[in-house]
Design a protein around this nucleic acid. Structure first.
Lengths: 187, 187
DNA sequence: AACCAAAAGCTATTGCCATTAGCCACGACT
DNA sequence: AGTCGTGGCTAATGGCAATAGCTTTTGGTT
């Protein structure tokens, strides 16, 4: 039996890719094992179980999302930055619905949890967007939560194809960006 | 063996209550059976399986949410209506996290699906809120999606205790309502 | 009042999935 | 060449969903 040359990172990456393909809810250890060319119990040499796998996928997703949003914002400010961040975030969720779903309902066990760090990085990317607006210090946290709620809500509703989002979703999203921009400028 | 006197509605109601208590992810057929005083296979006389149960819980949750929001809005208009709807929706999600979680990721199979009808009712309650604002017909749908995204996002992030929402979540929520109100009035 | 069919329970069983135990081969390093 | 940790394997366990098939209650009909 030749070695498969796996390591935790490879297993997690494959798990994330598989989750995107088959849906997070349908990600099983057996399916993942088949994908990486190994029998199920062998996966336990790299991750300690399904919970661990899920958490690691969530961390990966948050880091990638933070990179995507952070990268998209580079060189922009104000409305342009907001639009870039929003589009990047939504694109990420739609392209990687499985790994993003892994982040829902995960909460960091403590400040040392990698999940907390990854979450902070994503939040930081949105904070950068807010710096382009003239917002009172007291309002920054509220505004941050607003943006997070708005984008998370829109992306997840669309990803689950919630309710007859039949047409012009793009248009609605652009409208939403404009709405948020007007509101933030008016503070 | 005395009959337990169950019917589908009772099973679904008990399932929803149990989901609120133990979390939607931990709702199992065995647990529900124990709760209603019956052995597991007997549940299958009332619901066709776990998927069916989940969908029915989701329908119940959407109907209840629609009732809560619709009722709260009665007699109010404009900002008052918006605030009432927002608070009612959030209160519902926080009081019934399990059944609300059942609605996430469910998509109606067709226009005949009860899930579609229940979703429409909830949407209708929010539409009523928008009537209190002077919104161009072309924008109504966008605004509806905005509100749905905003409230869904906020509620689910808080319910999953997303990111250190440590304190002053109430304040953030009121801030968010004010933000949306200003934006809608400015249209 | 007796009867009977449908409904609603039950036990037993199957099969899938996560997880653990314990064995064995590969291969890097001495 | 020897050795030892790592990463793979088979086998087994336990939980859960689901199905099969039997039995009892129940409510309506004669």
């Amino acid at each position: 039996m030749p070695r498969a040359g796996l390591d935790p990172a490879a297993v997690v990456a494959a798990g994330a890719a598989l989750a995107d393909e088959v849906g997070f809810a349908n990600l099983t250890m057996g399916l993942l094992a088949g994908r990486v060319g190994v029998r199920t119990p062998s996966l336990y040499k790299h991750v300690s179980g399904q919970d661990d796998l899920n958490r690691r996928i969530a961390v990966l997703a948050l880091e990638e999302a933070a990179d995507a949003v952070g990268g998209a914002v580079q060189g922009y400010a104000g409305r342009d930055a907001l639009a870039a961040a929003a589009r990047a975030f939504r694109a990420f969720v739609l392209e990687h619905p499985g790994r993003y779903a892994a982040t829902i309902g995960q909460e960091p066990s403590g400040p040392e949890d990698p999940l907390a760090g990854a979450g902070q990085r994503l939040l930081g990317a949105f904070t950068a967007v807010l710096r382009g607006y003239d917002i009172d210090d007291r309002d920054v946290n509220h505004a941050l939560r607003l943006l997070r709620s708005l984008f998370h809500g829109f992306a997840t509703l669309q990803a689950s194809d919630g309710f007859q989002w039949s047409t012009d979703v793009e248009e609605s999203f652009e409208w939403l960006i404009a709405f948020a921009d007007r509101g933030l400028r008016a503070l």
